[in-house]
Amino acid sequence: MTYTPICSVDDILPNTGVAALVGERHVAVFRVGSDRFHAIDNIDPRSGASVLARGLIGNLGERIVVASPLYKNHFDLTTGECLEAPEQSVRAHAVQVQDGRVLVALN
């Protein structure tokens, strides 16, 4: 698995996301709390817009999700599953932190 450096840990405020281009793929990288990171595709499948990184992070039961800023669908940050319409799910990607940098590997 090849990891691509995205940014410094400090570049992502807790409970927010940032957008990054990894290869040809638009990726949303989220920081949940102070030390948990997740990455999913950034393209909202319903609209085709690259906006999921701007969504609101929250939880539905035990699942940590982001709500799309356009149609408010919820995407599980661990799996990429769209809770309202599973056929509109996105890919989840591997994330790791090394030496204060956030890295993403496409799945």
Rank of each mutant, 00 (worst) to 15 (best):
residue 1 M to G: 00
residue 2 T to K: 04
residue 2 T to D: 06
residue 3 Y to S: 05
residue 3 Y to E: 07
residue 3 Y to P: 06
residue 3 Y to M: 08
residue 5 P to A: 07
residue 5 P to M: 09
residue 6 I to Q: 02
residue 7 C to V: 09
residue 8 S to R: 12
residue 9 V to P: 01
residue 10 D to P: 05
residue 15 N to S: 12
residue 15 N to R: 11
residue 15 N to I: 11
residue 15 N to M: 11
residue 16 T to Y: 08
residue 16 T to A: 10
residue 18 V to L: 03
residue 18 V to N: 10
residue 18 V to R: 06
residue 18 V to I: 15
residue 20 A to S: 05
residue 22 V to R: 04
residue 24 E to K: 12
residue 24 E to H: 13
residue 26 H to I: 05
residue 28 A to F: 07
residue 28 A to E: 07
residue 28 A to I: 13
residue 29 V to S: 00
residue 31 R to S: 01
residue 32 V to L: 07
residue 33 G to C: 09
residue 33 G to S: 09
residue 34 S to D: 15
residue 35 D to N: 07
residue 35 D to M: 07
residue 36 R to G: 00
residue 38 H to R: 14
residue 38 H to C: 13
residue 38 H to G: 09
residue 39 A to Q: 10
residue 41 D to K: 04
residue 41 D to R: 04
residue 43 I to G: 05
residue 44 D to R: 00
residue 44 D to G: 03
residue 45 P to I: 07
residue 47 S to D: 13
residue 47 S to F: 14
residue 48 G to P: 10
residue 51 V to N: 04
residue 54 R to Y: 10
residue 56 L to D: 06
residue 57 I to H: 03
residue 57 I to T: 06
residue 58 G to M: 07
residue 59 N to Y: 04
residue 60 L to V: 14
residue 61 G to E: 09
residue 61 G to P: 00
residue 64 I to C: 11
residue 65 V to I: 13
residue 65 V to C: 04
residue 65 V to S: 03
residue 67 A to V: 06
residue 68 S to T: 02
residue 68 S to I: 01
residue 69 P to K: 00
residue 69 P to E: 00
residue 70 L to T: 02
residue 71 Y to N: 13
residue 72 K to S: 09
residue 73 N to R: 06
residue 74 H to Y: 06
residue 75 F to L: 06
residue 79 T to D: 04
residue 79 T to C: 12
residue 79 T to W: 07
residue 80 G to I: 15
residue 81 E to K: 07
residue 82 C to D: 08
residue 84 E to I: 15
residue 85 A to V: 15
residue 87 E to C: 11
residue 87 E to I: 06
residue 89 S to V: 03
residue 89 S to E: 12
residue 89 S to M: 08
residue 90 V to H: 01
residue 91 R to V: 07
residue 92 A to C: 14
residue 93 H to G: 10
residue 94 A to I: 08
residue 94 A to F: 05
residue 94 A to S: 13
residue 96 Q to Y: 09
residue 96 Q to G: 08
residue 97 V to R: 01
residue 97 V to H: 00
residue 98 Q to F: 02
residue 98 Q to S: 04
residue 98 Q to R: 11
residue 99 D to V: 03
residue 99 D to F: 01
residue 101 R to I: 00
residue 101 R to H: 02
residue 102 V to H: 00
residue 106 L to T: 11
residue 106 L to R: 12
residue 107 N to A: 13
